[in-house]
Amino acid sequence: MRHLLSTRDLLRDDAIGLLDIAEDMSEVQNREVKKLPTLRGKTVVNLFFEDSTRTRTSFEVAAKRLSADVINFSAKGSSVSKGESLKDTAQTLAAMGADGVVIRHSASGAPQVLAQSGWIDAGVVNAGDGTHEHPTQALLDAFTMRRRIHGDAARGRDLDGVSVMIVGDVLHSRVARSNLWLLETLGAHVTFVAPATLVPVGASTWPADIRYDLDAALAEVRPDVVMLLRIQQERMNAAFFPTTREYARQWGLDDERLLALRPDSIVMHPGPMNRGLEISSRAADSAQSTVIEQVANGVSIRMAVLYSLLSGDREARS
């Protein structure tokens, strides 16, 4: 692998390979010395044009655990806010000798542009671009599901036959899209549940079922996994639903819906959570919730991605 831009073009074997490497990386997190010397002397740049403390920190921890040097380059207070173009930023980073660039951008496709431009010869990791994709989030979600379902025997396995229900703002969610492609590749079946106003045009061509009534969908599908998406207040720029209370009542995972789930179903949320809106406190803190595991697994997955992109002979893979 040279870049990780989307989960749509990720082959099944490559995806399982990444999940397996992440298993090894997660074992390192339990040791006394949590660091590996693998990427010593390599430089990873976190290029964040959008604020995201969680994802940036997760990538930073992952890179540091592999002994890479990390440079955080955020849009605020940098030359980007002075009007520098992506091209000039990329060439600046190339001149400083960056081996890997982790990029988050509000424009869908920005990581693709960076990877294919020839401005910089570094491995590019998409850490979220517009409403397009967020591949490491999908990988860590798949990793979390695989671990909960298969336990210690998870290595080499896919998610064949697992039914995943993704609830909420599908329209703006890159997490939903990345998850859909990856879960489809791994053999799981995805059902989206959302208010009709938050389903994008063209979603009917996706390999997923689309439902509008959460209670009916839960009763019918009895899913293995329920994933709640965050209602992103900053993107609620139109009247997608009347009030947050109404949203919580119709599409939120409240206590009643939690109790109606199968006892072995798991509850996922990519964070940060709006407690009381898309997920109740009881659901978030229940034994079925994987929210904290997802954060820990995020570091393992990002270590696996950085290892796969940056450790080998880059010439041999182009």
Partner: peptide, 18 residues
């Protein structure tokens, strides 16, 4: 695998279990 000194000279190796 993670401790090898020749990682940069080969395609990426898949690590094994410790």
């Amino acid at each position: 695998t993670m401790y090898r000194d020749d990682l940069a000279h080969h395609p990426t190796r898949a690590p094994q279990r410790t």
